[in-house]
Design a protein around this nucleic acid. Structure first.
Length: 723
DNA sequence: GTATTATACCCTTCT
DNA sequence: GGTATAATAC
C-alpha cells in the first residue's frame, strides 16, 4: 500500500515521531507544533504501513471535543470509517469498560453516572444523617477531599485521616458515600476511573481482554493525566503494547483536578527504553504572538524547558484594550468582530475566551445587540440546567429504581403534595425495609402506612414512572420524553414561573426532545428502544452537551480558557485580564497555582493564529457590586513593544452609558470622599477607602482600617472624617 | 403538612 | 445573579 500521503507535509521531527518503531514513544510538543497531527498520522501509519488492526488501537484524550475531532481526522486520513477503533476520553473509555463488564465490576446493568452536582447533594444528605456540621466542614470541601482520594486511587478503608478533623469528617462521609453509591447503583466521575482501574487490576479476564486486544495505545495531553489514570494505563498495557504519549508541560492546566505534569517525567521512568521526540516549531501563530507567549511563560520556574520558534512572519501587534467596564469591553469585542467580518473574515474564525463562565453573559448581550451569531461552549451545560435535570430524573428513575436521588427529584418536581415530612417517612421506611425509596413508597402505600392524600399522589406518581417504562417498548426515546414533560406537570410548573425564565425553561425542555431525536437518529433501525434510551442517559452525564448549538452555522466561538485548549482561531480575544479574575483570586496565594494560571494564559495566547486582542475592564460587577481591579500581572509580562494600547473613545462611551464616563480613580463617592482617600472613624480609627457600592443614602464603602482591618460601612451613618 | 415567599449566602476551571 | 434554606402563609 502506498503510504506516502501519510508522510507528506510533515517536518523531520514530526516524521520521526510518526514512523518511529520504538515501543515507547514520548512526544514533547509545544503549542501549535502539530501535536494532534502527529497523533493522527501515527495511527494511520500503524494501521496502513505496519498493518496493525484498527480494532487493536486505543486512543485516549481528555475532552469529548478532542476525542471526536481526533476520530474524525483519523477516519478522513484513512478514507475509511473505523468504528472498531477505540477513541475516547478516559472517562468515556472507563464507562464503556464498566458497561461491558458490569457483572465483574459488581454493578447493576442499569447503573447511572452522576455529575458533580448530584454528588454534592449526596454529600450534604450524608452530612445531615451523620450529624456533621456543614458550617464547620463545607460540603464542597468534603466533596473535594473525597474526590482527591479517589483520584489517588484510595478507598475509604485504606485511608488514615490521622488527627486532621476535617479529614476525619471527610473520611466518615466517604465511607457512607461508598455504601450509598453501591446500594443505589450510582457511579460518579472519579469512580468511573477508580472502579475500572480496580477491575483491570484485579480481574484476570478483564485484564486479559485489554492485553490481548490492544497492540497500540496513544494518549493525548499526557500532562493532564492524574494518578489514577496513569495507574490505569499501566494496568491495561501488556509487555508488548506500543505506547505513544503526547504532551506539553507548559499546557498543564488541570492540576486542580489531580493532574500531575510529572507523569511526563514518569513516562521515561516507567517505560524503558523510551524514545523522546521534541516538536518545537510552531506552525500556528505569527511571531509576535509566539514571542508574547514565550515571554509570558518564561516567568514560570517549574518547567521542563523548551524553545518554541516559528519562521512565519511578524504579523500584527497584539491589541490591548482598556475598557471602562465589562459592557464596554464586550461592546468593543463585538464591534471588532463586526469589522473583521466586514473586511472579509467569517464569524467562525473568531473566538472570545475568558477565565470563568460567568463572564460570558456580557459578551453574549453585546453580540446579540448587533446580531452576531455565536456559539457557546460549556457554561451551565445544557444537561445541568434545573429543568433538564428534573425531566431526566424521571427517565433515570424508570431505568434504575434504586436511584434515590432521582426519586426525590422527580417526586418533588413539580410539587405534588409530597413534602419533606413524607419524604423523610419514605427514607426511614426504606432503611427499615432495606429497599430503595421507590419500592419503599410502593410498599407503604399498599400497607396503608400513608395518609390518604399522600397515598393518592404517590400512587399516581408510581404509576406514571411505570408508564414511562412501558412506553419505551413502543414509543421512541424522543416521544417518551415528549410525553413525559407534558404529562409530568413540568410544563405547567414553568408556565407559572413569571418572566422570561419560565419561557426559556420550557424552550429548553423542547430542546431536550430535539436532542433526543437527533440522538436516536444515529442508531440503526433495529436497535432496541430501551437500549437507545439507556445510552442516551449515560451520554447526558458524560457529554458536556455542546450538541445543542447549530454546529454548522458560521458563529463566533465563546469559551473558557480550559475548553479552548487544543483549538486554534485566526482571531482571538482574551477578555477580563484583571487581578483576582485572571489570575483568579483563589489561585493567587500559592505559587504553584499561580504558575498554573500563567500556563492557562499561555494556552490562551497560543490559540491565536493571526491577531490577538487582550482586554480588561476597570470596573467589573461581581455578584452585583462594582469592583475595581488592577490590570492582570500577565499583561506586564508581555513585552510592551509587542502590544498596541487602545483606550475607549470618549464619544463612544458617552453615548453608551453615562456611568461609564465616571472614571473610577477620581470618582467622588460622596462629598470629599473618593477611592484611596484616607479617612477616620470614631470607633475604628484611621483607614483608607478601598471600594464602594450603591449611591446616595444607601451607598456603602469598604474601608481598610489600620488597626481593625477591612470593613463595609453605610456611608450616611459612618460619619467619616476626611483626612 | 405542604406551598409560597423572603432572606442568606455562595461564587473557577472539566469529566 | 442564582439557588438553597428558613420563616410564614395556606
Amino acid at each position: 500500500m502506498d503510504v506516502s500521503h501519510i508522510l507528506d507535509e510533515l517536518n523531520d521531527a514530526q516524521r520521526d515521531a510518526v514512523t518511529s518503531d520504538d515501543q515507547y514513544l514520548l512526544v514533547l510538543a509545544g503549542a501549535g507544533s502539530g501535536k494532534t497531527r502527529v497523533l493522527v498520522h501515527r495511527v494511520a501509519w500503524q494501521i496502513q504501513a505496519q498493518g496493525i488492526n484498527p480494532y487493536s488501537v486505543l486512543a485516549v484524550t481528555f475532552t469529548n471535543k478532542a476525542a471526536s475531532e481526533m476520530s474524525q481526522r483519523i477516519q478522513a486520513m484513512l478514507q475509511n470509517p473505523v468504528p472498531e477503533l477505540w477513541c475516547g476520553t478516559f472517562h468515556g473509555i472507563a464507562h464503556r469498560t464498566l458497561k461491558m463488564f458490569y457483572k465483574e465490576a459488581h454493578l447493576p446493568s442499569g447503573f447511572s453516572v452522576i455529575d458533580a452536582d448530584d454528588q454534592l447533594r449526596i454529600v450534604k444528605r450524608i452530612m445531615k444523617d451523620e450529624k456533621l456540621d456543614d458550617a464547620l466542614w463545607p460540603p464542597k470541601q468534603i466533596q473535594w477531599l473525597m474526590n482527591s482520594w479517589k483520584e489517588e486511587g484510595k478507598r475509604a478503608k485504606s485511608i488514615n485521616a490521622g488527627n486532621d478533623l476535617q479529614k476525619k469528617a471527610a473520611l466518615q462521609v466517604y465511607t457512607q458515600y461508598e455504601k450509598k453509591c453501591i446500594d443505589e447503583g450510582l457511579v460518579d466521575f472519579a469512580e468511573l476511573l477508580l472502579k475500572s482501574f480496580e477491575l483491570v487490576k484485579d480481574n484476570a479476564v478483564v485484564k486479559a481482554y485489554f492485553h490481548k486486544r490492544f497492540t497500540s495505545v496513544l494518549v493525548d495531553e499526557f500532562q493532564d493525566t492524574n494518578t489514577i489514570q496513569f495507574k490505569w494505563l499501566l494496568e491495561i498495557l501488556s509487555k508488548d503494547t506500543f505506547v505513544t504519549a503526547v504532551g506539553d508541560d507548559d499546557q498543564s492546566i488541570y492540576g486542580w483536578r489531580g493532574a500531575r505534569a510529572e507523569n511526563i517525567l514518569g513516562f521515561e521512568k516507567n517505560f524503558k527504553p523510551a524514545k523522546t521526540v521534541r516538536l518545537e516549531q510552531n506552525y500556528r501563530s505569527t511571531s509576535v504572538i509566539l514571542d508574547a507567549a514565550n515571554a509570558l511563560i518564561s516567568n514560570n520556574q517549574n518547567r521542563l524547558g523548551k524553545n518554541l520558534w516559528t519562521d512565519s512572519n511578524k504579523g500584527e501587534p497584539i491589541t490591548l484594550y482598556q475598557a471602562y467596564h465589562e459592557q464596554d469591553e464586550a461592546r468593543y469585542i463585538a464591534d471588532t468582530i463586526k469589522n473583521w467580518m466586514n473586511s472579509g473574515g467569517s464569524y467562525g474564525e473568531a473566538a472570545v475566551i475568558y477565565r470563568s463562565n460567568a463572564q460570558s453573559r456580557a459578551i453574549e448581550e453585546a453580540l446579540l445587540r448587533i446580531r452576531i451569531p455565536y456559539r457557546i461552549y460549556g457554561g451551565t451545560r445544557f444537561y445541568e440546567r434545573l429543568e433538564i435535570k428534573n425531566a431526566i430524573s424521571y427517565m433515570k428513575l424508570a431505568f434504575n429504581p434504586a436511584d434515590n436521588l432521582s426519586f426525590e427529584r422527580a417526586i418533588s418536581n413539580p410539587p405534588r403534595g409530597i413534602g419533606q415530612k413524607t419524604l423523610q417517612n419514605i427514607r426511614d421506611a426504606s432503611i427499615k425495609f432495606g429497599t430503595s425509596n421507590f419500592s419503599a413508597a410502593g410498599r407503604m402505600s399498599q400497607e396503608g402506612l400513608l395518609p390518604t392524600k399522600a397515598k393518592n399522589s404517590i400512587d399516581t406518581f408510581l404509576a406514571f414512572i411505570e408508564d414511562i417504562k412501558n412506553n419505551l417498548t413502543e414509543l421512541s426515546l424522543s416521544e417518551t420524553i415528549d410525553r413525559l414533560i407534558n404529562f409530568s406537570g413540568l410544563i405547567e410548573l414553568y408556565e407559572k414561573e413569571k418572566g422570561e425564565k419560565g419561557k426559556t425553561r420550557i424552550e429548553n425542555l423542547e430542546e431536550l426532545v430535539t436532542a433526543a431525536k437527533i440522538f436516536e437518529d444515529d442508531f440503526p433501525r433495529d436497535a432496541a428502544l430501551k437500549d437507545i434510551a439507556q445510552t442516551f442517559l449515560d451520554n447526558v452525564s458524560l457529554d458536556a452537551g455542546d450538541a445543542q448549538a447549530s454546529a454548522h452555522e458560521d458563529a463566533v466561538q465563546l469559551m473558557t480558557l480550559h475548553s479552548a485548549k487544543g483549538l486554534e482561531f485566526p482571531l482571538v480575544f482574551i477578555s477580563g485580564l484583571e487581578e483576582t479574575l485572571f489570575p483568579h483570586i483563589r489561585s493567587m496565594d500559592s505559587p504553584d497555582q499561580l504558575e498554573e494560571e500563567r500556563r492557562l494564559c499561555y494556552v490562551g495566547i497560543t490559540r491565536a493564529k493571526q491577531k490577538l486582542y487582550i482586554t480588561y475592564a476597570e470596573i467589573r460587577k461581581i455578584h452585583g457590586s462594582d469592583v475595581f481591579n488592577p490590570p492582570s500581572r500577565f499583561i506586564r509580562e508581555i513585552p510592551p513593544e509587542l502590544m498596541d494600547e487602545v483606550r475607549p473613545r470618549a464619544s463612544v462611551t458617552m453615548s453608551f452609558e453615562r456611568k461609564a464616563t465616571q472614571a473610577p480613580k477620581d470618582f467622588k463617592i460622596s462629598e470629599g470622599i473618593s477611592l484611596g482617600q484616607r479617612v477616620a472613624h470614631k470607633k475604628f480609627g484611621q483607614g483608607i477607602v478601598l471600594n464602594y457600592e450603591g449611591a446616595g443614602d444607601s451607598a456603602r464603602v469598604q474601608i481598610n482600617f489600620d488597626n481593625v482591618g477591612s470593613k463595609w460601612l453605610v456611608l450616611s451613618f459612618a460619619n467619616l472624617e476626611v483626612l
